[in-house]
């Protein structure tokens, strides 16, 4: 997927990589911080599942049920994370708030080196391979 970072200013978003998108293409915009939270939490669940699985020896059939419940719990959390994206329900973990500033912002100055590409690492997630 062609993902670009952007900066919000005035009612518009200024893109780091405008060449990724076609004219009049529909896009969906998330704040980087919120997306990072969701993405990191999902990756943590995946890691948890893998670790749970590693505790299991191949011969131990009788332990499978116990591991299964633990994995289902992680999957449930994974599912909740994914549902949070488009649901209208308030997030349980969402306690931060912000104050709306009424002062006029200075005119938009874009830094000259806007070329950072989004990677999982830049969001704090390392997929171990």
């Amino acid at each position: 997927m062609k993902v670009s970072q952007g900066v919000f200013f005035g009612r518009k978003v200024y893109l780091y990589h405008p060449e990724y998108f076609n004219e009049h293409e529909e896009v969906i915009i998330f704040t980087r911080e919120e997306f990072r939270r969701m993405y990191q939490s999902m990756s943590a669940q995946m890691e948890q599942i893998n670790r749970t699985y590693l505790t299991l020896d191949p011969g131990e059939e009788w332990r499978v049920i116990g591991v299964w419940f633990k994995i289902m719990e992680s999957i449930h959390r994974l599912n909740l994370n994914l549902d949070d994206i488009f649901s209208n329900k308030p997030l349980q973990t969402y306690l931060d708030t912000y104050i709306h500033d009424t002062i006029d912002s200075p005119p938009m100055v874009l830094p000259s080196s806007l070329n950072e590409v989004v990677t999982p690492e830049s969001l704090g997630v390392n997929w171990s391979r």
Partner: peptide, 29 residues
């Protein structure tokens, strides 16, 4: 989250009140 539409090098958002000035955003198709 908000949907938006590409216009030139910028994006016009449908719900701009959700974001703050100078906020870092991620834009997906």
């Amino acid at each position: 989250y908000s949907y938006g539409i590409v216009q030139g090098k910028k994006i016009i958002t449908y719900q701009p009140h959700l974001f703050q000035n100078y906020q870092d955003l991620l834009v997906f198709p």
